[in-house]
């Protein structure tokens, strides 16, 4: 029982009670039932974690879950009060600040469309992103390995990477055969520079003793590049790829403005044009959740490939 007397559990009760207050937002119909349902789902997760995650090792995992869920409860309370229950919710501002219940209702009713958007966007992002990595990593290895080319390339790439990929959009539309190719190109450019810069700095920073050690084994050039320099630079390559992934998601909306008729970014942009902010926020939430999930997978992959580090 003592274990349940925590701040997150207290916030859960407050959140449920807050939903029952009379609503003041006249522009967007609220749905307190949906907000309470979400709160119950989160609380259920919290309870499972409380009773299942025991022992020193899982204590940290429990703490993270508990803190995140506590934060979400606090945030939802604030959101509900500001958007539906306090005087601030009344009047024309209410249209731009829908309460959480309304957003969740929109999310639930749009599930099939949302899934299609996720699939379309991920297809676009992975095509552009993987293409960028496939070019940037080998190129970075070669440029970084030939020290003279690397020095010049690092200045050139700094200059080019400071240009927002959005600038290229008209050129991409003119030069590339389809709108989709232009969209892929925006993602490609966005992730290319960070991946290239990360790879080059990784190669340039490989320790001398590692290179000497490999040379003394009589390693040839290709062995040197792929079995020594590549793994030795992998930590920095991952930093670059991580950055590239973040930028890709930031530019998703721009990329999907070009010619897409679906996708997470298109969806948000489309509803913003129609002034449907309930669905704009729902779309933003979806993007956030997808990005978090992909970052999580990416970090697992990184942890596995870099398992040789302390």
């Amino acid at each position: 029982m003592k274990r349940l007397l925590t701040i997150p559990n207290g916030l859960f009760v407050v959140l449920a009670l807050v939903q029952l207050l009379p609503g003041r937002n006249t522009r967007v119909p609220d749905s307190p039932a949906h907000a309470i349902a979400l709160a119950c789902v989160l609380e259920a997760v919290l309870l499972v974690v409380t009773y299942r995650f025991k022992g020193v090792k899982r204590r940290a995992a429990f703490n993270v879950c508990s803190d995140v869920i506590g934060f979400l409860f606090g945030f939802l309370i604030f959101w509900t009060l500001a958007a539906a229950k306090l005087p601030s919710a009344a009047g024309s501002k209410g249209a731009v600040f829908p309460p959480p219940g309304a957003v969740i209702r929109a999310l639930v009713s749009d599930v099939p469309a949302t899934l299609k958007n996720i699939v379309d966007s991920l297809g676009l992002i992975f095509q552009g992103y993987l293409l960028a990595l496939a070019v940037a990593i080998p190129l970075g290895l070669l440029l970084g390995w030939h020290a003279r080319a690397g020095a010049a390339a690092s200045y050139i790439s700094k200059f080019l990477s400071s240009i927002s990929p959005i600038v290229y959009i008209p050129y991409a539309i003119v030069l590339l055969p389809t709108f989709r190719a232009a969209s892929v190109f925006v993602i490609f450019v966005a992730s290319f520079w960070p991946a290239l810069a990360g790879t080059m700095s990784g190669v340039l920073n490989v320790e001398r003793r590692i290179l000497d050690s490999a040379r003394s084994l009589g390693a040839r050039q290709t062995t040197m590049l792929f079995r020594i320099v590549l793994p030795a630079s992998l930590p920095q390559i991952f930093i670059g790829c991580n950055q590239g992934l973040s930028v890709s998601f930031v530019l998703l909306t721009s990329a999907e403005m070009i010619g897409a008729r679906s996708g997470m970014g298109y969806n948000v942009n489309n509803f913003a044009n129609f002034g449907n902010y309930t669905r704009v926020l729902a779309g933003v939430l979806v993007i956030g959740i997808v990005v978090t999930a992909i970052t999580f997978c990416f970090n697992r992959l990184q942890g596995f490939l870099l398992r040789w580090r302390q």
């Binding site: 003793r209 590692i210 050690s213 490999a214």
Partner: peptide, 10 residues
């Protein structure tokens, strides 16, 4: 070599 020259990823 004096300083550990093993490849850390192997």
């Amino acid at each position: 070599f004096q300083h550990y020259s093993l490849f850390p990823w192997m």
